[in-house]
Amino acid sequence: MSNRTVLPDRRRRRNSARVTLTSVALLVAASTAVTAAAAAPSYQPAAPVEAAYYAPGPWAVAERTGVDCCTSTGEGYDIWYPADLGAGGVVHPVITWGNGTAAHPRHYAYLLSHLASWGFVVIAADRTDTGTGIQMLDAERYLARQNSDPNSVFGGKIDTGSVGAMGHSQGGLGAFNALARGGGAVGTAVTLEMPLSAVCPSLPSVDGHSACIDPAAVTSGSVLLVNGSADGVSPATQSLSPDLIGMQSTRAYYDALPADLPKARATLVGAQHNDIQGQPECTNYSCTEGVDRYLGYLTAWFMDRLRGDSTARQAFLAETGELLRNPHWSEQASTITR
């Protein structure tokens, strides 16, 4: 087990942790070894809001592994959180994370640590099939219990009313399901490279719950859907109507959500299925440029949705939002208003 502090310094984080196990795309049954790609050139954000939240936040980050247990299905948690929890009377919002198929929290350590540097407590169950959202909701409840425990490092320092869910690939389905099935415990969901709906019947159920999603079941909260333009598992658009072939694209999922729900979608140009696992460089299968290009707007979304940050919200406003005009992104849409 470990409990260590990581300083929010981008150079240190670039060199400290790299993916050591080859991950798989959702449709690949076993890990696939490939030659590590050359490090991508240093990424430069294209707009002010993106640049602000692309930078590491003001909090030093602590990481707990092998300490916190357990989900209802027996998995432990990895947690990234501000090292000086509660400083200045701050209570910290929660982000509950869902791994992609065959992946573990350590594959996303760079992203999750970045979010913690902005004041979030980020918790990830170490489970490799998270599409039902069950373990993500378990994680939220675990931190709520810790918040009530005066002997816990988290005691009295968690904002239990501000919880977001985010996940990659199958974990994107899990984030969606956590929002839909959480009874109001989760206030916003971010889906990253969520797979087309034709895949979901093949995914395992847990305690009778399916990984398949029903956008109409989301009646509150908000949703951000993100995919990569080079990701065939999570296409941005589809040629045939969803009435004929179902929801096989990010746009189809977005359109199926209630019209009055605060929602946004965008496609990262050139990103493949596992770029989100970059540390930040790519050493793994189906990754070309790494995680850097995701950092700014994912952080801004949670700063807006969970911390009421009006500057961050400017990125997502319908018609005028910065994300909708950023050249690194395409297929953008939003219903977010002031």
Rank of each mutant, 00 (worst) to 15 (best):
E289R: 15
R313P: 03
R313C: 02
W329A: 09
H328A: 14
R305Q: 15
G321P: 12
P280S: 10
T311P: 02
K263G: 09
S310Q: 13
T288P: 00
T311S: 11
L257F: 10
G270V: 09
V269G: 05
V269M: 13
H273E: 09
H328T: 11
D255M: 04
P280V: 10
R313E: 14
Q277D: 07
G290H: 03
T250G: 01
G321I: 05
L298F: 13
R265E: 11
T283W: 15
W301L: 05
R293G: 06
A256S: 15
Y285S: 09
S310E: 15
F302I: 10
S249Y: 06
N274R: 09
M303T: 00
S310Y: 07
Y294D: 00
V269I: 15
L323F: 11
V269Q: 12
A264W: 08
E319C: 05
L268M: 13
Y253Q: 08
Y297Q: 10
E319N: 12
L306C: 02
T267K: 13
G290P: 05
E322K: 04
T250C: 06
R305F: 00
D275P: 02
A252E: 09
W329Y: 14
D260E: 08
T320E: 11
E322D: 04
W301F: 14
G308P: 08
T288E: 14
R305V: 02
L317A: 11
A256P: 02
S249F: 09
T299I: 06
F302W: 14
F316L: 07
W301E: 07
Y297C: 07
A315C: 03
Q277A: 14
A271V: 04
